[in-house]
Design a protein around this nucleic acid. Structure first.
Lengths: 343, 343
DNA sequence: CTGAAAGCGCTTACAG
DNA sequence: CTGAAAGCGCTTACAG
């Protein structure tokens, strides 16, 4: 006859009003009033009860309507939304629609994730959290696991040591094919304008670049190697610096499309033509690659599909199913447009 | 001691398992099993009970957590997500975060909205729906009003005759200032590459263009007027056509940024330089305007703020508050960058 | 301001 | 396959 109240994922019992009341030395009724913000509770009692609720990690019970009807996943973006986020989100929303699920969008605000943040999400009935391109901190992970929320990360900035499920793409292969493309056109002086030195995706792209250059017996002068933050401004500034060099590159591999567009503009501002005077390859194949002038040769990341896979994986994990692999890498593909030609 | 179970909005009693069981002539236990998909129910009983549930419009009880903690708004985009949607969404999500609300993203899939679609949203606990740049059909409105859901539209394609709350921007003033800018640079041969002929925002921009041209005593040859669908390809195709003309324009006002980028590329593909050989003004000031090559002179719509205002208005209306006006227009502003110069 | 107690809406182990 | 009944977790009118 008893309902266990057991959390399916962790096996730990969920705190009930009764638990909390006993622990706080008050009646269940009083705890209920505190939870509902009723005014007829002494301030001192209220704060004491609130502390005990915290301590027991009380979460409102999940109703069937929440539990079955429309699973909801929180998709959290680290930065302002843009064409890149839009593609990933599109994939997740499409996949959710197929499964009858919902996607809530949020944008990381505070400096770091707190336990109460995660608990609020659990209370609001979220099944899982998908973090996009975020930096995974220990507090982030702790908060989520305390709240018993499933986490899936897309293209994380750092590779977490804990066993976190992540979705990425074949960045090394992408860097390799972008560079091989430039080499095969006859370029030898090729620069790389990358992302943050610590970013996992940037490292993989850089190593792909290096591997192709070595295989092609092309040297990389140190002044051809730049880091950045995946932004247009980085491309503009680094691109300008590269073009000032006594021996400027004839081609640049940019670590993403925004950076590539910045380099295009740096070239245009100096009266140089792309691709005649400078070839540029980007990375991502967001919408901006197609509408750039000239249209950008770039390495396609299947962003929509990454969003879709993340959503499906998150839901599967939240339902207690196993997934084959804790890290999935989808294939990248070189898309040749008009920003590259022979030197 | 009784809890009313009354729907606060309609005053109608919500059906409970007991109601349904009595009506179906079975026990409460059986209804519960049907709802939870347990296997120990005869198929005939199951389908009969399901029919009665339907008929009584049974909805699972709403928990405190759903009812108070986090109001949720459904934001529905008519087309695939892009840089434009991203800006609006960003504004809505930021405003929601301030109010402790959540934004669920969906993308219009089917040809038209059904009553069950709206009821599903109500069942899932949505407080309101925000429709972005959609075409408002009667069935859309009927479905929402039947489900007693608040609707706010952003930049709708058609001006609904019913009293719908809508958020837009000063498109006429924007079209005017874009054109005045080109005229003041000395241009006389100015073309307009617009959106759909029936789109309200396009009409207002076109009339702003016309008003400025008339005031400046500049004539508009009919072949300088084009419609489109706000897409890059439209700009590319129409731009190419304009440049083929025996008497090509020296400047083009494009009805949005995507169209403007298409025109830039059409010019570049013909060996023309922007702005030296052709000046171009866009509309929206999405991120792509800043990263275009050259950076695009454009009319800024405060897209983020439009998203924020829509969200706040939707929540206010859903809470039963009155709003001052059923149509709000936020101010546009000309942003001069590098795609315009003297002819 | 507090809590005992009634009650609500739902679920479930079990008897038939 | 069905339902009476125990029970869970929560809320609330009311007595003190």
């Amino acid at each position: 006859l008893k309902s266990t109240g057991t959390d399916t994922l962790t096996g730990r019992k969920r705190a009930t009003l009764a638990t909390v009341a006993a622990s706080a030395g008050v009646s269940v009724a009083t705890v209920s009033k505190v939870l509902n913000g009723h005014s007829d509770v002494a301030p001192s009692t209220r704060s004491m009860v609130e502390a005990v609720l915290q301590q027991h990690e009380y979460v409102a019970p999940v109703r069937r309507s929440e539990a079955t009807a429309r699973p909801t996943v929180e998709m959290e973006f680290d930065l302002a939304l843009n064409a890149y986020s839009a593609e990933i989100l599109q994939g997740a929303v499409d996949a959710a629609a197929e499964l009858g699920a919902s996607v809530v969008v949020s944008i990381k605000a505070g400096p770091d994730r707190t336990v109460s943040w995660a608990r609020d999400l659990a209370t609001a009935g979220r099944r899982a959290v998908i973090a996009v391109t975020g930096e995974l901190t220990t507090s982030h992970l702790t908060a989520l696991s305390r709240a018993r929320l499933t986490l899936v990360v897309i293209d994380p900035m750092n590779l977490p040591r804990a066993r976190v499920t992540s979705i990425g793409s074949t960045n090394f292969a992408g860097g390799l094919s972008a560079t091989q493309h430039l080499l095969s056109l006859g370029h030898r002086r090729i620069a790389y304008v990358g992302g943050p030195a610590g970013a996992a995706s940037n490292q993989a792209r850089l190593h792909g670049f290096r591997a192709a250059m070595e295989a092609g017996h092309a040297t990389i002068p140190p002044e051809y190697l730049h880091t950045g933050r995946f932004r247009y401004q980085d491309g503009f500034a680094r691109g300008a610096a590269l073009l000032e060099l006594p021996q400027p590159p004839t081609a640049v591999f940019a670590a993403n499309d925004y950076t590539a567009l910045g380099i295009i503009e740096a070239a245009r501002a100096r009266g140089l033509r792309v691709p005649e005077d400078l070839s540029i390859v980007g990375f991502d194949d967001t919408q901006i690659a197609r509408i750039a002038s000239p249209p950008l040769t770039t390495v396609r990341q299947p962003l929509r599909e990454m969003g879709a896979v993340a959503l499906r994986t998150a839901l599967r994990l939240a339902a207690g199913e196993k997934v084959d692999s804790h890290h999935v890498e989808l294939a990248t593909e070189l898309i040749v447009r008009q920003s590259t030609t022979t030197p």
